[in-house]
Design a protein around this nucleic acid. Structure first.
Lengths: 85, 85
DNA sequence: TCAAATTACGGTCGACGTAAGGATC
DNA sequence: GATCCTTACGTCGACCGTAATTTGA
């Protein structure tokens, strides 16, 4: 698991749509789809419930989202702290 | 910045020696040395003070170490939470 | 048929290992 | 000279984009 993948996951969760998320983070749909799959594989849980024209978070995804956001904010704070000091 | 690089940095900080850290995390000395350099480049601060037979943390490195540890623990908690739930 | 996701395939960039070089004790 | 760290160089894997396939409204 890497921060990059958490950023991807949060982007998808925020749009509820892999295509738009991909645009938002300047990536293609397949690339993003693959990374989410890889993340799910490593975690051992599905994070998205694939639907017709969109995706929804699974229970595991709902649990993950706020913690992933915290973690990314934590990483931002780390950078500010080390750079600022 | 990726979690992998933070894991590498913590390993180096814990041994005070790139060679031994590399052994501990099953990596070669050059690979580890490069990743630390890359991390320093991205952050914009030196993290290590290169000495004769070892390395020491710089001020920025000392600031970074505890936060990096927290962040990695945070990542572990995330995994446990998502897997356990 | 349209819009979304996935799978397949090829290319490119990055991380790694081996080997060589440099510095300090 | 021994033990570090770094630089150079080639390889392999990972991520990415394009194209093709699949699925559902």
């Amino acid at each position: 698991m890497e921060l990059r993948q958490l950023r991807y996951f949060v982007a998808v969760a925020e749009t509820g749509n892999i295509s738009r998320a991909a645009q938002a983070i300047f990536l293609t749909q397949p690339a993003l789809s693959r990374q989410i799959k890889a993340l799910e594989g490593e975690i051992g849980r599905d994070l998205l419930e694939r639907r017709a024209n969109s995706v929804r978070l699974t229970a595991a995804g709902e649990v993950m989202l706020p913690v992933a956001r915290e973690l990314l904010q934590h990483a931002e704070r780390l950078l500010q702290l080390v750079r600022g000091g």
